[in-house]
Amino acid sequence: MDWDKLRIFHAVAEAGSFTHAGDKLSLSQSAVSRQISALEEALSVSLFHRHARGLILTEQGETLNRTVRDVFSKLALTEAFLSESKEKAAGKLKVTTTTGFGNVWMTPRIGRFLLQHPDITVTLLLEDDDLDLGMREADVAVRMHPPHQADLIQRHLADFPIPIYASADYIAEHGEPKSLEELHAHKLLGFHGWHPPLPNVNWLFDVIRDTTGRTATPYFEVNNLPALATALSSGSGIGSLPLYVASAFPKLVKLMPDLPVPSIEAFFVYPEELRSSKRVSVFRDFLLAEIAATRHHHAMAASLV
């Protein structure tokens, strides 16, 4: 089997169309189609079902794609190891995390990491659904839950509380609730989406129901935590947010500060094969240092209140 044809086949299988694969490979749609037809002819099997809405792998195509994905992931890992200097961290690092943590917390800090390690290039993938580290969809992940895969290494980074917030403008207009019962008289904002970024993202609605015996209905829902923080900061209502998101919105005021609130466990996760990678270790150490600095900043701010 021709390696170049296999590379094109893999791109088509992942993209689901000749056109999208061609865009990724900088090839025309017709050139990609010819290569796939040539591969099918050489193997004497059909690799794709072709229909108006795109391409679907045949059973033989699925078998070939599983093997090709594994081979190319191992090649990518080998390339990364070969490109990394023994004296210093260097090479490409693909990082994935949730949209909220990535947008609000990680992206503003990544410039400092790049200044400290100019020989590393970073690709940041923001996904609320977990990418497959074992298949090299990313090198490392910051996840808001322990990893489900047993063959991944995990390092606990931090526990982030999820307090209740509203803007000072909202409080001035509608008053500040002092209990969960009083929240029934307010506009409550919540998260809505197929892939919740946190296991307890809507804890506030659960505790209101369990404590008061009455169901609270969201006045507004959105499937993105930074967008939810923007709505709260603009005075749209009351809601709960992870501290790492809320701290980027200075107009927010913490409500009912004595009320016990849940926390999110953040983990740094990577495959066993990258245990000795210098790029991974320096990025992990950078995250731990930044979290420690953030924790110290919040402690100092609290002491001045």
Rank of each mutant, 00 (worst) to 15 (best):
R214S: 12
Y219N: 15
Y165P: 04
D169L: 05
D169Y: 10
F220D: 09
T215Y: 13
P163T: 03
I171T: 11
P196R: 09
H174K: 10
F220I: 09
Y170A: 10
F220L: 15
T211V: 15
P218D: 14
E173D: 04
P197S: 12
Y165K: 07
T215D: 14
L204G: 08
E182G: 14
I208V: 04
H195T: 14
L204Y: 07
I208R: 01
E182Q: 12
H186L: 06
D169K: 15
G213R: 11
D206F: 05
G190V: 04
S179Q: 11
V222M: 11
F205H: 09
A168Y: 06
L180D: 06
T215A: 11
N200S: 14
N202C: 01
A172V: 01
A166N: 07
G193W: 00
G213C: 03
P199R: 04
K187V: 01
G213F: 15
F205L: 11
S179C: 07
L189V: 14
L189D: 01
T217I: 07
H195E: 08
F220P: 02
K178S: 09
L198V: 00
F191P: 15
K187N: 11
E182T: 05
E173I: 02
I171Y: 00
L198H: 13
V201I: 12
L198W: 07
G190T: 06
I171E: 11
F220K: 06
H186S: 10
A168M: 09
H195L: 06
G175H: 06
P199V: 01
A166I: 14
S179F: 14
R209P: 03
G213I: 06
P199W: 02
P177C: 12
H184G: 10
A216H: 09
G175E: 05
H174I: 02
P199E: 06
L204V: 03
W203I: 02
H174T: 04
V201F: 03
S167R: 00
A168C: 01
E182H: 04
L180R: 02
